[in-house]
C-alpha cells in the first residue's frame, strides 16, 4: 500500500515561500476596491493556501485514495451545510411572507 513518501527539502521551502507571497497578496488585495470581488479574491487565495498546505505539508498528494476521499468528503458535507442553509436565507424576501398570527 502506501509506503512513506519523503518530500525533498526544496518542496517545503517552495511551498512556504508561496504561502508567504499569497499572504502578502491577500493583504494587498484587501486595500484595493474590487467591489463585490473583494471577498471572492480573499476566499480564493485562502482556498489556494489551504490546498497547498493540504497537498504538500499534509502529504495528501502522495497519500492513499482513502485519505483523498476523506478530504473531499469533509468539503462535500460543509458544502451541503452551506448550500441548504443559504437556500433558506437567499430566498427570504422573495415573497412578502407574513407568519401566521401576526
Amino acid at each position: 500500500m502506501s509506503s512513506v513518501h519523503v518530500s525533498p527539502l526544496s518542496t517545503y521551502l517552495t511551498i512556504f515561500t508561496a504561502l508567504m507571497v499569497l499572504s502578502a497578496i491577500t493583504v494587498g488585495a484587501a486595500f484595493v476596491d474590487l467591489g463585490s470581488l473583494n471577498p471572492v479574491v480573499a476566499l480564493a487565495i485562502a482556498g489556494l493556501k489551504a490546498t497547498l498546505v493540504i497537498l504538500y505539508f499534509m502529504h495528501v498528494k502522495y497519500s492513499s485514495r482513502l485519505t483523498k476521499l476523506t478530504v473531499v468528503l469533509s468539503m462535500f458535507f460543509v458544502a451541503i451545510l452551506f448550500a441548504e442553509t443559504l437556500m433558506d436565507y437567499a430566498t427570504r424576501g422573495w415573497l412578502n411572507y407574513v407568519p401566521m398570527g401576526q
Binding site: A30, K49, A50, M58
Partner: peptide
C-alpha cells in the same frame, strides 16, 4: 503534524474573514 497543519488552515481562513472584511477606502 496533520493536526498542526489543520490548525494552520483554520487560521488561513480566519485571517481574511476577521481582519480584512473591508480595508479599502
Amino acid at each position: 503534524g496533520l493536526y498542526w497543519h489543520f490548525v494552520d488552515i483554520v487560521w488561513i481562513f480566519l485571517f481574511p474573514l476577521l481582519y480584512l472584511v473591508e480595508r479599502h477606502n
